[in-house]
Amino acid sequence: MTLYPIETGHFKLDGGAMFGVVPKSLWQRTNPADANNMIDIAATSLLIEHGKQLILIDTGLGNKQSEKFFSHYHRWGDHSIDSSLKKHGFHRDDITDVFLTHLHFDHCGGTIQWNKDKTGYEPAFKNAKIWSNQEHWDWAINPNDRERASFLKENLLPMQESGHLNFLKRSKNRHFYENLGFEVLFVDGHTDKQMIPIIEYQDKKLVFTADLLPTAGHIPLPYVMGFDTRPLKTLTEKKLFLKEAVNNNYYLFLEHDAHNEVINLKDTEKGARLDSKFNFNELFTT
């Protein structure tokens, strides 16, 4: 197995929304805001080369939305899935599996693209199975009013219509999937049945934290996003996860942190806190 970080594109989000009830005077110490209160956000996917499979975890925002839509998210930098895949010697047609932690547009938008003449949509990875889970899918296609703006029909319906969509079955909130080669933790605070991959790699456990822990600035327990549908559930799930991460020296791959690629944690009198920051390619050999 070999892993590769894949930069899909950077953008910005409102710092207050990203930190919920936490005052700006506290969260800006780790995530400084610009004059419009926007903070830097990444959408970093993870590519897993596993035998004959090339598994891409999450796909970023994509590029099919309108300029008006993207004007709300202030994209910056020159990262793209295609250039990042090319850097590692791959093409999007090589991808065999797309694993989506959840179906919010910033995690799955790159899965579907315009067709050639822009009359409709098609899978952006034409040879790939798309993996979600039935419970989260049902939640997304019948969205509550709070999440409606995050579950976009132009992302979801073409997945189903393409015939590429598959659902992972689960019997408990933690399950190892032989067909993918990694374990999945199911969590419900941010959105229903978000899937968190836990990957055994080079004698370490690497966790793709998705929106359970968006950035290093979100480590303290009360630092919960305003986007979460069940913030008290997030607190419970996060408390258990952080304790496990400290006790087992997990390495945390931060999908949304534009400045910290991988971190680990230590226990302090205030609870779990940042221990070390790592560049992925310095931590793991390829």
Rank of each mutant, 00 (worst) to 15 (best):
H218Y: 03
D211T: 01
F182I: 09
N247H: 06
R174K: 14
L235V: 12
E261Q: 15
L206S: 03
F176S: 09
K204C: 04
P158V: 07
K277L: 12
F176W: 14
H256A: 05
V224A: 01
V207L: 10
D203K: 13
F176R: 11
S171N: 08
G226I: 05
L235M: 12
H164P: 06
G189K: 00
Q194E: 15
T215M: 13
F186M: 09
L274Y: 01
K204L: 08
T209A: 02
L254P: 04
L252E: 06
E161N: 11
T229I: 14
A245I: 03
L274N: 01
L213I: 10
G163L: 07
H164R: 14
T215H: 02
N264R: 08
Q194C: 09
Y223P: 01
N179D: 15
I196K: 13
T209S: 00
S276N: 15
K193Y: 14
K205G: 06
Y250D: 06
L165I: 08
F253E: 12
F186I: 10
K169F: 03
K270P: 00
D257L: 02
F182L: 10
P197D: 13
G271Q: 07
V262I: 15
H190A: 10
A210E: 04
E244W: 07
P214Y: 14
F176T: 08
P158E: 15
P214T: 04
P222S: 00
T236L: 13
T229V: 11
F253D: 14
G181H: 05
Y250I: 02
P220Q: 01
D257H: 00
V262F: 00
H259G: 02
E200I: 03
D228A: 15
K172W: 11
N248E: 15
N179K: 15
E255C: 05
Y250G: 02
F253A: 10
L206E: 08
A210P: 01
G226M: 06
I196P: 09
Q194V: 06
Y201M: 12
P231Q: 08
G181P: 04
N179G: 01
K239Q: 15
E244Q: 12
L180E: 09
E255P: 01
I263W: 05
R273E: 12
F227P: 01
K205Y: 13
V262P: 02
L235K: 11
L235N: 08
